[in-house]
Design a protein around this nucleic acid. Structure first.
Lengths: 150, 150
DNA sequence: TGGGGTTGCATAGCACGCTATACAAGTATA
DNA sequence: TATACTTGTATAGCGTGCTATGCAACCCCA
């Protein structure tokens, strides 16, 4: 019994994820954005001035990854780190005018990728797809949970 | 109308893919393997002595990625590059005894991750999940196709 | 008021995947 | 045969994500 990549959920999911990323890159690269910055921008467009800690809590990404992405965003003029009024360890992350101006085009780009990806699916199929992914994510998180720092 | 990451297919797919990778890492790290090596090993367990070109054709990964992964696998004693009998540019990729011995435990680990991930789904739901992913992949590939070097 | 634990962030170092590029070996053509 | 094109690999450089670690600011308690 040979293990076939094409019937391996992990393999197919990984492949799909890379295609999503590629399609998004194609559309946001002209805006000067990258895929990793996207979740951060999304969060900051909704709530500006969050600390890194708060961003980590809201996104499913490790602190070190957030810190590195913020470095690149600061370098690219998307974000400013301002000192926290009371906690000397923290900084509040603020968007530049440039980053604010990208909200429209960038979300349109992301929406367009999602629309294209799901284009051939019926509305109930899309719904089922999301429900299934939510289940899968839950199962994997439960499997990984015992590892959490307790 | 704000764009919500939790209802964005791309975001959820990316998150799911990272969880799959984490779960697999947890199981194959003790074997001295990493996630990126897995597809290559799978292919070589089935057909040893392939060239890099042939691996690129069989896996959905770029040539440069394959070359780098092979470098790490050679470094880790999983793979040997032997000169191609007729084409001086190519090399045939052979597995070491060590790599061959890992086929059983490694495929079991991957199978176990897939089983856990899909655990809460009925058989028809699993089937539907694969069909949907295949559709999504096809749609994204069609969107990206115009970019191919023709 | 210390001193010790905690918490927020930064950094080092790695794997993985990508694009772009270089280069040697092969092929074909004038 | 000499030249030009093509093809197979390698490498540089980057972004994304991870773990592990360091460190200063904070907090609590004796």
């Amino acid at each position: 019994m040979t293990f076939d990549k094409d019937t391996s959920a992990g393999y197919v999911v990984n492949h799909m994820a890379r295609l999503f990323a590629e399609a998004l890159t194609q559309r946001i690269q002209p805006l000067g954005l990258t895929t990793g910055q996207f979740p951060l921008l999304l969060q900051l467009w909704a709530e500006e001035g969050l600390t890194q800690k708060q961003l980590v809590e809201r996104l499913d990404v490790e602190q070190a990854t957030i810190a590195n992405t913020l470095n690149r965003m600061e370098r690219d003029g998307l974000v400013l780190r301002k000192p926290h009024p009371v906690d000397g360890r923290s900084q509040c992350i603020h968007l530049t005018r440039k980053a604010r101006a990208l909200q429209g085009p960038a979300t349109e780009a992301a929406q367009s990728v999602n629309d294209i990806a799901l284009r051939s699916l019926s509305v109930p199929d899309r719904q089922a797809f999301f429900e299934t992914m939510t289940e899968v994510i839950k199962s994997l998180q439960e499997d990984l949970k015992p590892l959490d720092r307790s």
